[in-house]
Design a protein around this nucleic acid. Sequence first.
DNA 1: CTTCTGAAACCTACGTCGTAGATTTCCCTG
DNA 2: CAGGGAAATCTACGACGTAGGTTTCAGAAG
Lengths: 211, 211
Amino acid sequence: MTRRTRGTSAGLDRIRIAAAAVALVDRDGLDRFGVRRLADDLGVDPMSIYHHIKGKAALLDAISEAVIAEMDTGTKEAPHDWEQVARQTAHNYRKMAYRHPRVFPLLATRPQNSPAALAALEHLIAAMRQAGLPDQITADAPMALFGFLNGYLLAVLSGSPDRPAIDATAYPTMAALAPLQADFGSAAEFDRLLDTVLSGIRDRATRQATH
Amino acid sequence: MTRRTRGTSAGLDRIRIAAAAVALVDRDGLDRFGVRRLADDLGVDPMSIYHHIKGKAALLDAISEAVIAEMDTGTKEAPHDWEQVARQTAHNYRKMAYRHPRVFPLLATRPQNSPAALAALEHLIAAMRQAGLPDQITADAPMALFGFLNGYLLAVLSGSPDRPAIDATAYPTMAALAPLQADFGSAAEFDRLLDTVLSGIRDRATRQATH
DNA sequence: CTTCTGAAACCTACGTCGTAGATTTCCCTG
DNA sequence: CAGGGAAATCTACGACGTAGGTTTCAGAAG
């Protein structure tokens, strides 16, 4: 009963494969991910996967696409204030990242061209434009916001669970401020940093408007 | 003449290995990087490398350490205005990233605990503290700045050389603003986004001071 | 001058990986 | 009932990371 006979259907398709791949990365991490292990999880011959997804690189694309698609709930509401849209998007993104910490490096590294990702961007900059923000600042906002989100979440999620203590004599200021960084990775820290980035966008907008 | 006799020195050490590894990643990319190819470049047996660096993971650590160390020129000047320090650090970081675009994902993914990296951080937050910025904002600044730098540079450097055109009917606002994103990856765009982040830090500081 | 010792390098071998190419089986259409 | 395409498996190849053993040499100890 170990293996299927040769021509019978195994019910494989892109969706099922991507879901199993996400589960495998969540469980074992990116290093241990591979076509053969994925085939084992699916109870299938490794080469069967290639009839639906053309190679390992495409598999990684499918993983990031699946994880992004899982995130797009609740963006269909009426257009709010652009800052509310940005905050909501950022928090949804963070939630997704914490659900799949070992998948996240894939998202931060690869360009995101999936419909779900583009729709979220369109929603955000449409709200900014409707609010009357200068076009150049609106055009720059996605890179500023998602640049920060990707870099910050990458640092938080791939940081070692026990952060090394700092040498107080070599780096006195860092040592003095260390207590204020004790909530590393917390929602409170995230809110502070997100506020900083959004403040920057707002500030640049008002400066350019009055100039 | 193909191979060395067995006990003779090949002049290997951690420095030479790391330099060759950086050159190999620069040339062939992270996917093609491996112990055997590195040994070929060095004219050496693969296992010889293990007497100086204990495994592939440690090799990647050595690569990122070498690239960071190459960056620390010019931080020994007198303490300037904190914004000048931040801008200088950011520009140095960007220069390094553009010199080694295929190494950069390594830096953005791994926590940076090398002395060179810590010294740059200490320099930055010392300048902020001396300028009288609130401690919490100073403590948050490194994550805000390097979060942005890592995420943004990752997007710029690993983006495909030909960016896909956007669907004007599905995403009208993005299509309308596309001309303003034409300088993707340029120094001008970088300066605008860096200004945004630094404005956010400054703005938060003044708001907290007057509050 | 001889002997010992440790380091540096190489050689062999094992299990794993991604995937190209050929083969088998099923299902659907004519 | 014939045949063709789709889905799955089987086989095989080259490359990878690295554990364990072997060889050689330089310098210290006697």
